[in-house]
């Protein structure tokens, strides 16, 4: 009984503490912070071995104003949804066997960072260990005073109607903050740069109420649509990374002000639309993370190629505030 109570308390505590904090101003790099002596090593993390599903989280606890019983109900509901999602995604996983995301992420990241000369990229390596102890060990073993950490994830949305590729980009100092423990370096407030970027590529004519049908469409023809969507998502993340690395404080401040921009209509993304370059394609500022989400519908024509050119300018177009 005591074990059960402890476990339940852990669940509630974890749920409460998972709320994102976006108070630190490190979504851009000031010009004086761009150059560091000795350059920067790059660590690419892809923790997963294949595409992951997602679920809509049950929030009965929040709606009811808290309570252990509601937290347990939430956990039970979420577990049932996770089990269902893991079953539903199997045909897509089977179709994507042999689709190796890791080298694609490595190649695309390398090309993007090579195009950002001030970053002065040194050694670049890929790991599947996404844990904090592994990152601390990588920092301790780094030969540069700062490393760039690019953490990739690729998954479906809860309805399986979109492919979501996420990139969590961080600059992490090797030096431990004075009087702090080594893992304090990973805390957001000590990161010189931290940006969360996402690409959501929707299936054309997807039906959010038919997850199995969506999976079938993604998986058809050896997962052709899914492969194209993930590749496009990876490319979008590179474009957003380039723009984020080039952002100035003034530009980011302008983005943070809504200025009557339309609110995001994307589920689970709270923010406002920054750009809509073409019908069905929108760039959204996510206020919870301070990052960007690019949403678009997969073009049924030729699949995207993930090869951002090394010569691509790091000084990407400025995200102009709405008038």
């Amino acid at each position: 009984m005591r074990t059960n109570m402890r476990a339940a308390a852990c669940l509630i505590a974890c749920a409460l503490s998972s709320v994102s904090v976006a108070g630190t101003k490190n979504n851009f790099i000031t010009p004086e912070a761009r150059t560091v002596e000795g350059g920067r090593e790059v660590l690419i993390i892809v923790g997963q071995s294949e595409i992951a599903p997602n679920i809509n989280i049950s929030n009965i606890t929040a709606a009811a104003g808290g309570g252990l019983l509601f937290a347990l109900i939430d956990s039970g509901v979420n577990n049932a949804r996770a089990k269902e999602a893991e079953k539903t995604i199997v045909p897509l996983r089977e179709a994507l066997l042999g689709f190796d995301f890791d080298p694609m992420a490595q190649g695309a990241s390398s090309a993007t960072l090579a195009g950002t000369s001030w970053l002065d990229m040194k050694q670049l390596r890929l790991t599947k260990d996404a844990s904090a102890p592994a990152l601390v060990a990588a920092l301790d073993g780094a030969t540069t005073s700062q490393i760039m950490v690019l953490r990739y994830e690729y998954e479906t949305n809860a309805e399986f109607s979109a492919m979501v590729v996420s990139l969590d980009a961080q600059l992490v100092n090797k030096a431990v903050p004075k009087g702090k423990k080594p893992d304090a370096r990973l805390q957001n407030k000590y990161l010189p740069f931290h940006q969360v970027l996402r690409s959501m590529v929707r299936l054309p004519n997807a039906n959010d109420k038919d997850p199995a049908g969506n999976v079938k469409a993604w998986s058809a023809d050896g997962g052709r649509a899914a492969r194209a969507a993930v590749e496009l998502g990876l490319q979008r993340c590179q474009e957003l990374l380039q723009r984020s690395l080039a952002l100035t404080e003034a530009e980011f401040t302008a983005i943070m002000k809504r200025n009557k921009r339309p609110r995001s209509t994307i589920p689970n993304v709270i923010g406002w639309e920054l750009e809509s370059p073409q019908p069905g394609s929108t760039l959204v500022h996510d206020v919870m993370t301070g990052g960007f989400v690019q949403v678009e519908v997969l073009d049924a024509s030729p699949p995207a190629v993930v090869q951002p050119t090394a010569s691509a300018t790091p000084e990407a177009p400025v995200l102009a505030p709405a008038q």
Partner: peptide, 18 residues
């Protein structure tokens, strides 16, 4: 109080590699 409880209780989830 809730935040403090969360931080305290979350410590029970081990981060030691298994």
């Amino acid at each position: 109080t809730a935040a403090l409880a969360a931080v305290t209780l979350c410590a029970c989830v081990s981060q030691v590699p298994m």
